[in-house]
Nucleic acid binder design. Structure first.
Lengths: 340, 340
DNA sequence: TTGAAAGCGCTAACAT
DNA sequence: ATGTTAGCGCTTTCAA
């Protein structure tokens, strides 16, 4: 059961083609110095025998597993799927395959992540947030010389090959837009404090508010965890008071949707009585009502390019140390000028 | 780059522990007949050298790759993530790793799927819908003797080890509930016609309607694709007429949410003017407003158990041919008695 | 341009 | 209870 019988090997192909196994190997790996007549004989034998090289044998001598890891911790399904799509897009047609390695918390399990990657025997790893911002993960990776690339890192901006976007300026842009609508009573729901993008986005919001001379009220800054439920709860605390804000900036879309749901339950109409913004342009921001004004984070593109970078590194090809993708403000139906 | 230098091998461990490599192998694989003194010496050498067995070498002799494939095609991120969670849950702590193999269309790419699995060199594969209902996939898999298990299959009910639920009776249950509320003008939005669960759910709806003597109007049966957008469009066609239905049964949650969104745009209130039901209990059904009345499909549990079954098969352990999980009707806020 | 031999790191089979 | 030998299927020398 489960153990393949005697499967067809390179020797069988060699025998059928009437050549040595090395010639078969040359043909299969597109090496030069093979007469095209032989090449054809070999290819014919390969197809007629339905030969598939044994990856373990290849890997053993080449010291490779042709496995790429993707380490993530994220409560948002649409974000995770985008991440995977980007990596798989680039891997399609290559011999490399993708191993997904979700973890409940990078922060808590930082020390276990690299051992896990070793156990999984990956050749390299793509690190989206928050793993890309974990000093421990980066150090342990460097210690064992495992190739990696970082997606949208915030911390340690010079370390390792990376594909980035500017979280702070994206956050600033969306806050500027809300301020431009006339809002002055603006609350903020932060993301998971262990994710560094949280502080980065905070910087952006703060810059926009202070540039417009809007005083930042500390009791209007709520903690969240990037989850729908945390957005709901934060919204309840924010809206359950007489002097409630006219706008809430949530650090991702899931929380923003949580805010709109809570507002509805409390009889507060979005956007006429309350403006709400998200972050990411994840699927949920598009398919709930009102559609959430947000900023498009190019997750697919960044992960695809980070995977490309990783392949270049592992193959020893020349590559840039850093790539960059642009965010984009998406004005939708959850924002409007403040009441009266 | 990317190529590990001379990494520590079983020979190094043997040398340090002062034993033969076979003894190290015995210790590492928990084989009997090793004195505990030696065992400790070996373990000590292993940790002090930070030794990790080479999976390629192990795999070469054991004829295994310790890779499990998960083939899916699904437009719903929350469904996909549930699927993956189930498989990973069971694989955690095992030496097996998960390779994700999304495909744009099982129907269109049926012939490529098994070659893809061979190229990925997986030891076995978990097949959720719709791959589990593809005759071609099942036949090709059998032809190369690759172990597989099926999640929630509809077609070929006797073929292969499988973990199921009863789509038809779940559909019947939710339709019965809507009828029980007093509805008689009931429309249906079908799922992707290449997914067999679509016809299965149709059977359930039809049984409920005919048992209650509700005439099924053919022009109230709309085609959908399991996507949010397709639900929206179908809803537009259904609601954009004077004799519109008082209830719409959508074959998954994404489409049901699409219906509620379209209803809102058209000024039709859910649930007072229109009742809407979904299917799956995916995250989206819980976090949009109104929350969708739906039926819980135990995706996580089914996939976890299918993975468990697969491991048993591959290890040659005894195992059941079929497992079963129960669905559960979840009455939420998108349904109410018909107007007047 | 082709082939023979050696060996990648491990375990199965067979000693002892 | 422990060690020796012989591969697993491939690619990398190196020789012809």
């Amino acid at each position: 059961m489960g153990i393949k019988k005697q499967s067809v090997t390179i020797m069988d192909v060699a025998r059928v083609a009437g050549v040595s196994s090395k010639t078969v190997s040359r043909v299969l790996n597109n090496e030069p110095h093979v007469k095209s007549a032989l090449r054809e004989r070999v290819m014919h034998a390969v197809t007629s025998l339905n030969y598939h090289p044994n990856v373990n044998a290849q890997g053993l001598v080449r010291r490779r597993t042709y496995l790429i890891g993707l380490v993530y911790e994220n409560p948002s399904p649409s974000y995770v799927v985008e991440l995977q799509r980007g990596a798989i897009e680039r891997l399609t047609g290559e011999r490399y395959r993708l191993i997904v390695l979700p973890t409940s918390s990078v922060e808590e399990n930082a020390e276990q992540i690299v051992p896990l990657l070793r156990a999984a025997a990956v050749d390299g790893v793509v690190l989206p947030p928050p793993a890309c911002d974990s000093r421990i993960v980066l150090e342990r990776l460097a210690a064992i010389h495992m190739p990696f690339t970082r997606v949208a890192p915030v911390l340690f901006p010079q370390i390792g090959p990376r594909v980035g976007m500017d979280d702070a300026s994206a956050a600033r842009e969306i806050a500027d837009y809300v301020i431009g609508l006339g809002h002055r009573d603006i609350a903020i729901i932060k993301g998971d404090p262990t994710h560094r993008s949280t502080s980065e986005r905070m910087r952006g919001y703060a810059a926009a508010l202070s540039a417009a001379d809007v005083r930042v009220r500390l009791d209007w800054i709520e903690d969240g965890l990037f989850t729908f439920a945390s957005g709901q709860e934060a919204a309840r605390r924010l809206l359950d008071r007489p002097d409630r804000p006219t706008a809430i900036l949530a650090m991702n879309d899931d929380m923003a949707v949580g805010v709109t749901m809570m507002a509805r339950e409390m009889g507060i109409e979005v956007p006429t009585e309350l403006s709400v913004t998200g972050f990411d342009d994840s699927e949920i921001s598009r398919i709930t009502w009102p559609r959430i004004t947000t900023v498009h984070q190019p997750v697919f593109e960044m992960t695809r390019d980070a995977t490309d970078l990783l392949l270049a590194i592992m193959d020893g090809r020349p590559h840039p140390e850093e790539l960059h993708h642009e965010h984009k403000l998406l004005i939708r139906q959850s924002t409007a000028p403040p009441p009266r």
